[in-house]
Amino acid sequence: MKILVTGATGHLGSTVIETLLKKISSNQIYILTRKEEKRKEFQSRGFNAFLGSYDDIIALENAMEGVDTVLLISSGDEGDRMQEHKNVIDTARKKGVEHIAYTSRCLNDRNTLANKLMVEHFDTEDYIFESGLQYTIFRNILYMDAIPQFIGGKISLEKGIFLPAGDGKVSFALRSEMGEGMANVLLKEKNDNKIYNFTGDKTYSFYDIATALSQISGKDVKYTNIETAMFETMMKQRNLPESVIQKIVDFVTDIKHNQEANIFDELEIQLGRKPTGLKDGLKILFGF
């Protein structure tokens, strides 16, 4: 097995690599990174490391030379994400890569999403299906790791949680456990043309999050469901750019509409244990 991990220096990619190393050697793992110092670091550890981005076709071609599987970790939304994804998929076809895996999103209905950026994940899936490549799609639920960002970090322990999320629920899972599950799938000999939905085994609302934080912190943390307009005003007072505010609002709106509330057992199966629950996850994330 020779596998290329893109986005290797991010939290998800790092966990995938750590898990892969338990079963295969570093010289079977190929790395694509934007940072030269990271490339040198990986190279010194025995990885096949390449400097480049999803926009750099030559770098993609070099990184895929002799590779069996490409793990495409989805790009950020700063640039033309769809074109970047197409570059990776097209290069994989050109270089004769047998199998491509993609980190998509586990969402209820692509046709009713408020967050249109999420639709690009499904568009990427469609492009992979049409490419003729053997594929594995990882539809990942919203990271539990994102909760501190949504609620304002430890400030929420003092001031409470204010979001227009209603009583919408999410089957949160830790990013590290999703990365571990993905690597376990990729290490299998036959995993082609499959879709895995990685979620936690329970759903939680922000009322549940407030209750859990109260229990682990000893403080009385409350969640207040506020109107979207009030939330936007609060964000503006924090001098956040309009584009960032809209992105947060769209995420929260989809949570309110239970786009992230599906539960599947596939992450538990791949981990060989139950995913970490909310209370234990928050202890890790908040350092309790």
Rank of each mutant, 00 (worst) to 15 (best):
V185G: 03
L174M: 15
L174P: 00
Q259H: 15
T199P: 04
S217D: 12
Y223S: 05
D280Q: 14
D208Q: 00
M230Q: 12
A183W: 01
E260K: 13
T203D: 06
V244L: 15
T203R: 07
Q270S: 11
L285H: 12
S176H: 11
R175F: 03
V249M: 09
K169S: 09
N225K: 11
I209N: 01
F206W: 00
K236R: 15
A212I: 03
T233M: 14
I226W: 06
E266N: 02
E189D: 10
Q237P: 02
S171N: 00
V249R: 08
I248Y: 15
G287W: 06
E242C: 09
N191Q: 12
E266D: 10
L174A: 07
N258Q: 11
D265K: 04
G281V: 07
I255H: 03
D220F: 12
G179A: 11
F251A: 02
L278T: 03
H257L: 10
A261N: 13
K169M: 06
D167P: 08
L240W: 09
R273F: 07
D208Y: 04
T199E: 02
K188E: 12
G179R: 13
D250V: 06
G179Q: 06
L267P: 00
I284C: 03
K169R: 15
N197R: 14
M234K: 10
I255S: 04
L187D: 04
K222I: 11
E227Y: 11
K190G: 00
G281K: 07
V249S: 04
D220L: 13
M230G: 05
Q259S: 09
S171F: 00
S176A: 14
M235H: 06
D167I: 09
I226V: 14
N258H: 13
H257V: 03
Q246K: 15
